[in-house]
């Protein structure tokens, strides 16, 4: 059975419904599954809970689903650079659960690894700890964080083979690797699908067991949020 689909809409056929929870990879605009996000927008499903480190920027990435009002709740660590997000949040149209970035990553890792909860020092004594069980280990206070398991994971990789084995590129790996594991089903978009056997087994970043459906989304424009450079003289 091939994992390859012709486009994002076909790859998501039969998988989307209202009220579902999506786990979405990416950091800022780096490594976001933009073709799949656009297909979710076009499908028009509503009342979504989206687990993602960021919420895109205005009109880009998850910002598209905010603009259409399809997201009911975000679970994120950082949502700056997004006016529409701030507006909806302040107007009470959007529910937000702020979660420390490392705790978010570990909650998804735990969800994917069959661990219902874990203890961490992150957030002890802050409003993140409010309402959470605490416990002392070796004289240190820890808070209990529950794992996250979504209905569907959407990620972006660099190269994958038809067995789903995937390689990420540079810092575009970020949350993609862990989000792929945090749902029973992961759909991935990549910049190139290569023949089975052309990825060195030792070099695989994400084993194909997690990736059920695959599209090639190339060509990508790849937007940069903050372009910073040095001049030759300074180098």
């Amino acid at each position: 059975m091939s994992r390859k689909y012709a486009n994002a809409t076909e790859a998501l056929a039969g998988l989307l419904h209202d009220d579902m929870t999506l786990c979405v990879g990416g950091f800022g605009l780096c490594g976001i599954p933009e073709r799949l996000i656009n297909a979710v927008r076009d499908a028009g499903v509503r009342n979504l809970t989206v687990v993602s480190n960021n919420a895109g920027i205005d009109g880009e990435g998850l910002g598209q689903l905010l603009r259409t009002g399809q997201i009911r709740k975000m679970i994120s660590s950082y949502v700056g650079e997004n006016k529409e997000f701030a507006r909806q949040y302040l107007a009470g149209e959007l529910e937000v659960e702020f979660c420390p970035q490392g705790t978010l990553a570990e909650r998804c890792r735990a969800g994917g690894a069959g661990i219902p909860a874990f203890f961490t020092r992150t957030g002890v004594g802050t409003q993140v700890a409010e309402g959470k069980e605490t416990r002392e280990f070796a004289g240190q206070e820890y808070i209990m964080e529950r794992s996250i398991r979504g209905d569907l994971a959407l990620i972006k990789g660099w190269k994958a083979d038809d067995a789903g084995n995937m390689i990420f590129r540079k810092t575009a790996r970020n949350f993609n690797q862990v989000m792929a594991t945090a749902a029973p089903l992961c759909v991935a978009e990549v910049e190139g699908i290569v023949p089975v056997g052309s990825i060195e087994p030792d070099a695989v970043h994400l084993p194909g067991i997690y990736v059920k459906r695959l599209i090639c989304g190339a060509p990508y424009e790849k937007k940069i949020e903050f372009r910073t450079v040095r001049t030759k003289e300074a180098a």
Partner: peptide
């Protein structure tokens, strides 16, 4: 209202 990003993890760990 932007969120804590990784700051809480950094100061704790």
């Amino acid at each position: 209202i932007k969120g804590m990003g990784g700051a809480m993890d950094l100061v704790a760990g």
